[in-house]
Design a protein around this nucleic acid. Structure first.
Lengths: 84, 84
DNA sequence: TCTATTGTTCGTATATCATCGAACAAAGGA
DNA sequence: TCCTTTGTTCGATGATATACGAACAATAGA
């Protein structure tokens, strides 16, 4: 998990989801290739930090806050507070 | 800082310092080359996580808990708790 | 002075990672 | 049916990281 969040792009995604709520991948696609973003979302998914659910023509990403708090108590919040 | 702690070797060093208190590099030199350890200690030092003070013929490493808590409140503790 | 201990630095090899473009798959709407 | 949108997968590439041995510097002690 620390590895997943040690990349600035991925940390930015997590921060964005925390601040602006669930959203698809699109909004993060600024200045980065689609395939690169897809890779980062996959890393976040496989490390259990986010989940994607299909909705209409796209997918909605959301933070798995409850799961993370259960496995790493306080860690996500500490990281999000420190990101400012 | 997340990058520094995302490496298992470095996380092990930080955990060792937290559990067993200040100590030189030597005790961590099991199964890893001296130069490799020196590199990891340097990364930890440069990211502000530990500090080294000369003492006799060697150096003593210590966690910079106060500084870390000031900059990233609760983060170190959350990580150490999660490491078990 | 000589030797041992402790950690650093250097050069190098290997592995991993981030990034990209292009091609692809799935679903909705015209 | 055709086209658009959204995201994935597949190489390939360049950058970065990890790891090692060997040589080095500084210090303490015999």
């Amino acid at each position: 998990m620390l590895y997943a969040l040690s990349d600035p792009t991925r940390l930015g995604i997590v921060k964005g989801l925390a601040e602006r709520g669930d959203q698809p991948c699109g909004p993060f696609c600024v200045g980065t290739a689609k395939s690169t973003l897809s890779h980062h979302f996959k890393v976040l998914r496989e490390s259990g930090i986010i989940q994607m659910r299909p909705e209409g023509t796209s997918y909605i990403n959301s933070l798995r806050r409850a799961d993370l708090d259960a496995r790493f108590p306080g860690l996500l919040q500490a990281i999000l507070c420190a990101v400012e």
